[in-house]
Simulated assay, not measured.
Amino acid sequence: VNYSGLASSKYAALARKYAPKGAGAVFTFSLKGGYQAGVDLVASLKLFSHLANVGDTRSLIIHPASTTHSQLDDAQKTAAGAAPNMVRVSIGIEDKDDLIADLDQALGG
Rank of each mutant, 00 (worst) to 15 (best):
R16D: 09
R16N: 09
R16A: 13
K17Y: 08
Y18T: 08
Y18V: 02
Y18F: 10
Y18W: 01
A19P: 11
A19H: 04
K21G: 06
G22D: 04
A23F: 05
A23L: 13
A23R: 12
A23E: 02
G24K: 11
G24M: 15
A25V: 05
A25P: 05
A25K: 09
V26Y: 09
V26R: 03
F27E: 13
T28S: 14
T28H: 12
F29A: 05
L31K: 11
K32A: 00
K32N: 05
G33Y: 04
G33E: 02
G33D: 04
G33F: 05
G33I: 00
G33S: 00
G34T: 14
G34Q: 15
G34P: 06
G34W: 05
A37V: 15
A37W: 14
G38S: 15
D40E: 08
D40G: 07
L41R: 01
L41N: 04
V42A: 03
V42T: 10
A43S: 10
S44A: 02
S44G: 09
S44L: 12
L45V: 07
L45H: 02
L47M: 15
L47A: 03
F48G: 00
S49M: 06
H50Q: 10
H50A: 07
H50V: 15
L51I: 02
L51S: 03
A52F: 02
N53V: 08
N53I: 01
N53K: 08
N53E: 01
V54Q: 14
V54R: 04
V54F: 12
G55D: 13
G55Y: 10
T57V: 08
